[in-house]
């Protein structure tokens, strides 16, 4: 789910297949993780609501399935990026709300800044080369 920039710097004890607790500074979040965490900015949500909100935020580009969402929520819980509330029943279905922690907000802010920087750098270059080509 999360892609590390440097595989050599990984701590062996941290890494296992399908379970990469790499929500640390210096790593990039993949879109599903990014939008799932971003879905919780406005307040606690349950699983299905997170998936729907993530889809809205991404403009319909990111669809998070049940299996994917719970895998990334488990990792986020292990990394203390979100906390899980008590289970409750709504409409005959059991739910549990997840809340973004301060550490989660920091990680999201870092990632948003990184993406913004990357976008502005590329946009700037594109603009510059387009203007040069036109003149």
């Amino acid at each position: 789910m999360i892609r590390s920039n440097s595989s050599r710097n990984r701590r062996p004890a941290d890494l296992t297949i399908g379970w990469l607790p790499t929500y640390r500074v210096g790593v990039e979040l993949r879109p599903p993780s990014y939008f799932a965490l971003a879905a919780l900015i406005d307040g606690p949500l349950h699983g299905y609501a997170i998936a729907q909100r993530a889809r809205e935020l991404s403009g319909g580009r990111v669809r998070i399935s049940t299996g994917t969402l719970y895998a990334l929520l488990e990792r986020a819980l292990a990394e203390s990026l979100v906390i899980a509330g008590e289970p409750y029943v709504q409409g005959g279905r059991q739910r549990r709300d997840y809340t973004l922690t301060p550490a989660g907000r920091v990680l999201l802010a870092d990632e948003a800044a990184r993406l913004a920087h990357a976008a502005s750098a590329v946009s700037g270059r594109l603009r510059a080369t387009s203007e040069a080509a036109l003149t």
Binding site: G47, Y48, R95
Partner: peptide, 13 residues
Amino acid sequence: TRGPEMLGMLLDA
């Protein structure tokens, strides 16, 4: 631990 809420989300979706 997560089964009932996963099932709930699956039924919603």
